[in-house]
Computed example of a mutant assay.
Amino acid sequence: MPRGRFLSLEGGEGAGKSTQARALAAALRDRGVAAVITREPGGSPGAEAIRALLLEGESGRWSARAETLLFAAARADHLEKVIRPALENGCWVICDRFVDSTRAYQGVAGGVADAEVLALHAFGSEGLLPDRTFLLTLPLALGAERAARRDRGASDRFAARESDFHAAVGAAFERFAEAEPDRFRRIDAAQPPAAVTAAMLAALADWLP
């Protein structure tokens, strides 16, 4: 059985990653492709337990270094229990965030060196990267507006941070996309949702049956 494809969706707050992960999975299934949706942090029982530690509480609950370690531990379990088995069974895995989010949030915006983030990823997850990463882009103000509507006053520790932090995250994602054009595809997330899904499908045309 051929290995499945590993896709990740990245971007700042309010970009619509969760919505688009579901829409993309449905579109792939309509084309006869077995698709699994998952998320980070989380995706496996152990990683979901770590997710609660990471997202709940005050903004300063953890340092960026402590967050990086927690994310790496959650990702190692997630890969072992969910992502790798699905890929080996021929499924396409669609992950709402992956290691690039740690590189952006804890790395660039949080001050942890990218080499340290990637070293932990090499150890905990054997350096696995997605086959293709969709970077959903939109203006910072629009993302904040969408996130506020989504969260209804109950933002998690990351969404609640200041605009300068989120601007640094967005700039980091852009740099990653520029550095790895073979893996990244930039998608305008300010479009209507159906247009965003269509753009992602078009960017997968070389792989689709």
Results as ranks from 00 to 15, higher is better:
149 R>A: 15
100 D>S: 02
1 M>F: 09
205 A>S: 14
185 R>E: 08
119 A>H: 09
193 P>Q: 07
193 P>E: 06
183 R>Q: 09
70 L>Q: 04
52 A>M: 13
188 D>W: 08
7 L>H: 01
35 A>P: 04
61 R>P: 07
11 G>V: 05
121 H>L: 08
114 D>E: 14
2 P>H: 09
49 A>V: 02
94 I>P: 00
47 A>N: 03
194 A>P: 03
57 G>R: 03
35 A>K: 00
142 L>R: 15
159 A>I: 11
173 F>A: 02
198 A>T: 09
125 S>C: 15
185 R>C: 12
156 D>L: 13
107 G>E: 04
81 K>Y: 05
159 A>C: 12
183 R>T: 10
138 L>I: 03
53 L>K: 03
64 A>E: 09
167 A>S: 10
70 L>Y: 04
127 G>A: 12
46 G>W: 09
17 K>Q: 05
183 R>C: 06
144 A>H: 12
201 L>M: 15
93 V>G: 00
61 R>Q: 14
68 T>C: 11
5 R>Y: 08
195 A>D: 13
47 A>S: 14
106 Q>Y: 00
129 L>M: 13
26 A>K: 05
98 F>M: 13
121 H>E: 11
182 D>W: 10
142 L>C: 08
169 V>K: 01
152 R>Q: 11
98 F>Q: 13
106 Q>V: 00
121 H>K: 08
31 R>K: 15
8 S>V: 07
20 Q>K: 01
209 P>M: 10
192 P>M: 06
66 A>F: 08
160 A>L: 06
47 A>V: 01
196 V>R: 00
9 L>C: 08
34 A>I: 13
49 A>L: 08
32 G>H: 05
125 S>Y: 07
18 S>G: 07
29 R>P: 04
138 L>W: 02
195 A>W: 07
171 A>D: 15
9 L>T: 03
80 E>Q: 12
188 D>N: 12
82 V>L: 14
34 A>T: 12
20 Q>P: 00
151 D>W: 03
197 T>F: 02
105 Y>I: 01
177 A>F: 02
115 A>D: 15
15 A>M: 13
111 G>R: 08
4 G>Y: 04
